[in-house]
Structure formats: structure tokens, C-alpha cells
Design a protein around this nucleic acid. Sequence first.
DNA 1: TTTTTAAGTTTACAGTTGTAGACTAATAAC
DNA 2: GTTATTAGTCTACAACTGTAAACTTAAAAA
Lengths: 154, 154
Amino acid sequence: MIDEQQVAITDSEWDLMRAVWTLKRVTSRQLIEIMETERQWAPSTTKTMLRRLIKKNAISQVGDTRPFDYVPAVREQQSMDAAAVRLFDSMCAMRTGSAVAAVIQSRELSQDDIANLQQILAEKMKTAPKTVACNCLPDGNCMNMNEGDEHIGQ
Amino acid sequence: MIDEQQVAITDSEWDLMRAVWTLKRVTSRQLIEIMETERQWAPSTTKTMLRRLIKKNAISQVGDTRPFDYVPAVREQQSMDAAAVRLFDSMCAMRTGSAVAAVIQSRELSQDDIANLQQILAEKMKTAPKTVACNCLPDGNCMNMNEGDEHIGQ
DNA sequence: TTTTTAAGTTTACAGTTGTAGACTAATAAC
DNA sequence: GTTATTAGTCTACAACTGTAAACTTAAAAA
């Protein structure tokens, strides 16, 4: 019964969601204060986001008496995984490896994270194909490095 | 003189961009046909996307006589890297590793890709911290696994 | 129990995105 | 040279986003 339909979370919604995930159960008051001091959001902005996230089923309102509490309705890791996978879905398969490399290089990973990734990669290597085909339209190879980049940049 | 300000590419724009990257130099006619057969886009939709991408400086119009040609103005790999890094920027640093793992597990990587990643990870391991702090608001630890997940899912 | 205040709900509004029709200006065909 | 085709530009429009004011209702305070 885990949350099936992963909701799409927008940029600023991530901000609010992260606070809710961190606090696990919050009042709108708390959220308003946090977003106000940390993100300069007007109280109304937080209220609107909260309302939208509830409608999207990413947050649930609990309690029946007035200062309600709000709790996450989707898990953080799952939402992150889904968002990341989704993004890669829209990009060329052939270049996934490099993009993942860029991400890894751009941020800090713990020893455990790295060990875990190494473990996964070692396993994956066993059945890895020599190459991954480009899946861009029109069934072409977006990577053939002939001419073509002269116009890029300014 | 590489493209500095990486433009934000939307979901459907990725589709068109990929075709442009693949073909390197295309006419609107070609694009219209590709998107029409492969994505069921109305000709106008392709035209609009093309126009918007030009305005965003992701594609350049070249030539001075009527059937113009269109060429990418940003590099595919760079755009992918930027988009991926950007997404991770809005999510919890502490969970980056797991999300990257999810991505890796979700798709095919070539032997070279894997070797490259392994190389990067090995290098990164040398200076990897024991743990990566959660950078969610309110400076909390979004990962402390006490109670809190009872409400999730339905 | 009337007033205040805080919490929650509606409305607003510009900009973006997905989709696409309408219109205009070059070319190509006759 | 007209006319028919295209290629390119403008307009449209609803849904979604970022941002927030206005309004309403339920508690809390007086």
C-alpha cells in the first residue's frame, strides 16, 4: 500500500516538502515561520503551497480541531528517486552515464553512499552492454561527433 | 566561449531538442514531420516549440534565404548535466546518493560508463566524508527514522 | 459573549508550458 | 507575373507555477 502515483513536485514545492519531511508533523504556523525567515515567502505563499500540495496528495491535513497538523503523504526518498528517474527519462539514454557522472562530481557523497554505488555498479557491470544506443528521434545517433558544434556558444 | 547561461528546457522541449541535436542542422519541415509521426504533434506545435527554443537561445536559426536551417545553440551533454545537477540542487543532500543509485539501477549503462563512474567514485572515496549532512529546512535532519511514516500511502 | 486574533479558504495575477489555429510573407509552379 | 505552396510569425487558451492579497471562520482573550 505504498504511495503509488508519485506526484510531480515543482521547484518551490520541494522547499516546503522538505520542511514537512524534516518535521514530520507541522502546523501551518511553523511552516509559515520557516519559509518566511529562510525563504522570504509571504505567509500567504506558504499557505497556498500547503494547499496545493494537499490537493496533489503530497501532504495530508490531520486533526479535526483548528490548528491542524500537516504530515507528508509521500516519502521523501521515493519522491526524489521518482523525480530523478523521470528527468532521465526525457534525456538521451546514451548520455545517461555522463550526466550521472556530472551529478556525482558536483556533490558530496558519504563513504557509505559511495560504497553502495560501487556495489551497485560492480553488479551492473556483470551484465553491462558494450554500448547503449541513442534513443533520440529520429532513431538517430545524437552522439556521432562529426561537425556540427561550430554554432554552439557565442 | 562555451554557452554560459544554461537555459531551462522543459519536458516537451527536450523532445524537440533531441531531434535537433541528433540531426545537427534541420529544417522546420524535417522537425515537423518527425514530431508529427513520432509524437503526434500538430505542425503548429512544432513550430511553436521551435520558436520558443530560439527565443531561449537553445536553438539558432541559420541561413538567410527562406527554408532556414536550425542548429542547436547549446550542447546536449552540457544541457543534460545542468538539468540533472539542478534537480539535485532542490533535493536533500543527504539523500543524493540513494537517488543517484535509483537512477543507475533504473537504466542501462555501458561498460565504459560504468568503468568511468567507478573511476570517479574511487577517486571521490579518498576524500569522502563519513556522512553528508541534511540540508533541508529548518536545518533539521530529515532522515532521522523515528515514527512519522504511518500516514504515508493509503 | 463580544472582540480579537490566528488559521484556513478564495481570489488574483503575471509568467510558463502544452497544444494548436490563424495569418502573413516568401517561393515555387503555372 | 499570378497563383498556389510553404515556411515563418502571431494569436489563443487552458492548466500549471510563483507569489500574494483578501476574505472567512473558528479559537482565544477580554
